[in-house]
Design a protein around this nucleic acid. Structure first.
Lengths: 341, 341
DNA sequence: TTGTACGCGTTATCAA
DNA sequence: TTGATAACGCGTACAA
């Protein structure tokens, strides 16, 4: 038994297809009596419109494509949560795809979504200019785009993210106020947001008139955790024996920060006694870590929610050029891992 | 500028639409010369078929719907990862939706996916019989379904999950071998898998001839972490002063287990000295916890991968009735939180 | 080897 | 108030 169609209802009730269609969409042209007959029968048959056909006809799918780099971390999951809340409020459906930090995969995601037909795109791009021309073409074809999280991007459009500069500034300042002046900042390759975070870090140091250490900053591979572990470990060991002994680490991402804690435990280095740790993190269990983790928390759900709302706005009121970049504020949470001993 | 269609190419090259269509699908009916002209032009124009129209025409969407309860935990994220790997291997696209542990939301997910047109459904259902008739109808309409993770379900179809009985048995046995005989098992409401886990727990006790304690088992609200925290805390405090003093906790889910660690730290109860902790968990950073967490790890990625492969098999080779339930083995990882002091 | 004609399920225009 | 007809973009049986 296949799905019921307008044609089936039309035959069964001896009414034309177009009348059935209009009756089901509650058109003013149709008599109440006919509407009732049709709608009752449709309910009885568990009828629902074929969205594929409907989309082909009206040229809209009522669907938003969402491309994230990976869904296996709390931060992205929270963003998706916010997006989904907004999708329920606005009545749009969402299709989630993963680019896996790979420009080619990202390209295929965009193409799949485009050919499948979406009314707009939410994307956290792999890099600052990944698939730029493809995205531009999408825009020109009347499909609005909103960029979230990785807002440092060449595409001219609305962007929603966190105030990364300020978050990094606040965290670094906190460390400095605790007397931790030898801070290693660990960040990831190709991370669009890393510049802002690095600048916030530098700004705090400047304000406290602390010169940059020779080792003050390393970039790691954040795709492969085994490599990441090695890189973090080697950086710690290398910098531990310099003349300015390392006494704090500031992690740029969730994985970097939590893995740093694990590695320090493994190396037998005491946190926070020997090295204080703080970092950008949105995991749900900061107090279950060893020790409880100080962090900069991003308003992830709000980022997703705001981005989705922005996009729906663009879809409903197209063709305006005053794009804006929204930076939502972060929250500094102080726990044991960064406190004075 | 709208997207290029077959018609556009047909006009531009003065060739009929059907020839263009055939040339692009590399049909044997078309001359190499014509193919080349058409394909070159299509590439130049960045042409991609309109999947909406294509789906309507051929009655297939090459798309799999995936419904999970929530994506904000590592276990589900890992499963989705496995599903996505299989999707790349098989060439099917996936649409991910969240039921949020709500039967009504689950219903709307199924309806959206159904009306949007999917070739099959992967679902981890809200409960054992949630939306049973709707799912049956889907099946009858020729859309195969594979259930993953929450395999205790009334629907007759293929199911892929973990061997929960054995996982719980192994964990409990490990605790007993450490001399921890007063074990509290904490699980969630309405969790389809909880029966199996409880039975594995009981079986190990039986084997060691340890009688069930009066407090041996509580069911918590796993939706709201604030409530969950209170329930866990109250259960611990209540059972701490009974004649059989509590000396181990076995958590049924990731959140329960990690929150338990946090609460014990908060209460100043030493792990594992006073209370040993072990539980089902798939977080990526068990060694960053306080203390490093012993756990039963589910083969999450394999569950997703296997489920997807099963589904594709059902799609390509429909109408057979020998459904099976696959239980993949869990891994026991022993760390500090459950070791003899 | 190429082109014509039809239909997938829906909506929209216009005539009855 | 209702219905016949065309069209969305594509694939395919059949004719040329």
């Amino acid at each position: 038994m296949a799905k019921t169609t307008l044609k089936d209802i039309s035959k069964a009730l001896n009414i034309s297809i177009s009348t059935v269609s209009k009756a089901l969409s509650d058109s003013y042209e149709i008599s109440e009596k006919t509407k009732k007959v049709v709608q009752d029968y449709a309910t009885k048959m568990n009828f629902s419109v074929n969205k594929v056909a409907q989309s082909l006809k009206i040229g809209k799918t009522n669907t938003i494509g969402v491309i994230v780099c990976a869904i296996n971390n709390t931060f992205i999951a929270e963003i998706l949560d916010g997006i989904q809340k907004a999708s329920i409020e606005t009545g749009f459906d969402i299709i989630i795809m993963q680019s896996r930090e790979d420009i080619q995969v990202e390209k295929s995601c965009i193409e799949v979504l485009n050919s499948r037909g979406i009314d707009g795109l939410l994307i956290s791009p792999v890099s600052e200019s990944s698939n730029l021309s493809l995205l531009k073409e999408l825009q020109e074809n009347g499909k609005p785009i909103v960029i979230f999280d990785r807002t440092v991007n060449q595409l001219k459009t609305d962007k929603v993210g966190a105030n990364n500069f300020d978050g990094a500034y606040k965290a670094t300042k906190h460390l400095l106020e605790q007397g931790r002046t030898n801070i290693l900042h660990i960040t990831g390759h190709q991370l669009g947001v890393s510049k802002d975070r690095l600048n916030g870090y530098k700004e705090a140091l400047r304000e406290f008139e602390i010169p940059l250490k020779p080792y003050y900053f390393i970039e790691c591979n954040i795709q492969d955790t085994a490599i990441l572990d090695k890189q973090i470990k080697s950086a710690i060991q290398k910098t531990l024996n310099t003349e300015h002994k390392l006494n704090a680490i500031f992690g740029a991402t969730d994985v970097i920060t939590t893995r740093t804690l694990g590695i320090l435990a493994e190396l037998g280095i005491k946190v926070p006694e020997e090295i204080a740790v703080i970092g950008f993190s949105n995991i749900s269990i900061p107090t279950s870590l060893n020790p409880a983790l100080s962090r900069i928390k991003q308003p992830a759900s709000e980022i997703g929610h705001t981005a989705m709302k922005k996009l729906i706005y663009l879809i409903k009121r197209p063709s305006h050029n005053d794009f804006e970049t929204i930076e939502l504020e972060t929250t500094l949470e102080i726990r044991k891992s960064s406190l004075l001993t």
